[in-house]
C-alpha cells in the first residue's frame, strides 16, 4: 500500500485492480454511493469495510489501458463534489419544498378560479329581471306598458 504524493490516502495497486480507503467520518455513505455510480461505466466498483471506521473502494478495470490511479484521484474529487451537493441540498431543502408546494398549488385549479370561470361564462349582459336598469327607465317602461294595455282594451271593445 503506497501513499499518494501530496494527498494523505493509501492506494494499493494489484493486477488490473486498485484499492483505496475513505474516511466515512468525512464522507457520507450516500456521497460514496453517488460517486461510485459515476464510475460504473469505466470500472467495476466494490465497496467493503466498516461504514463507521473505514470504507474500502476496489476498482477493477473493464477495458485494458485505463489509468486506475488517475481514476482514484478523480474519485476523490467527485466525492467532494457529491458532498457539496449533499450540503447544498440540505441547506436549501425548505426553499425547495416551498417552491414545489407553490408550483403544485398553482397547477391544481382552486375553487375561486372555478367560480370566476363560471361567472365569466355566464351571459351577464342579459338582464331578465331589469336589475341593471335605472329607476327612470323602469318607470318609463311601466308607463308604456300601461298605455298599451289601455289601447288593447279599447280595441277589443270596438271590435265587439
Amino acid at each position: 500500500m503506497a501513499k499518494n504524493k501530496g494527498f494523505d490516502f493509501k492506494i494499493k495497486e494489484l493486477e488490473n485492480s486498485l484499492e483505496f480507503e475513505i474516511n466515512p467520518k468525512i464522507y457520507s455513505l450516500n456521497a460514496i454511493y453517488k460517486t461510485a455510480y459515476f464510475f460504473l461505466d469505466k470500472v467495476y466498483v466494490f465497496l467493503s469495510g466498516d461504514p463507521k471506521k473505514e470504507i474500502r473502494v476496489s476498482f477493477k478495470v473493464k477495458e485494458a489501458g485505463l489509468d486506475l490511479k488517475k481514476l482514484a484521484n478523480e474519485f476523490y474529487n467527485e466525492l467532494l463534489n457529491q458532498l457539496l451537493r449533499e450540503k447544498v441540498s440540505y441547506s436549501n431543502s425548505k426553499l425547495r419544498e416551498f417552491i414545489v408546494a407553490k408550483a403544485l398549488y398553482n397547477a391544481v385549479p382552486n375553487e375561486v378560479d372555478e367560480l370566476l370561470k363560471e361567472v365569466e361564462e355566464e351571459d351577464w349582459q342579459e338582464d331578465p329581471l331589469g336589475i341593471a336598469k335605472t329607476w327612470e327607465e323602469q318607470q318609463r317602461e311601466k308607463g308604456e306598458k300601461s298605455k298599451k294595455g289601455k289601447r288593447s282594451k279599447k280595441g277589443k271593445k270596438k271590435a265587439k
Binding site: Y33, A36, Y37, L40, Y44, V45, F46, L47
Partner: peptide, 13 residues
C-alpha cells in the same frame, strides 16, 4: 460477478 456488483451499487445510489 463484476457486472452483478456494479448493478447492485447502481441500485443503491
Amino acid at each position: 460477478k463484476d457486472e452483478f456488483t456494479n448493478f447492485v451499487l447502481g441500485m443503491l445510489s
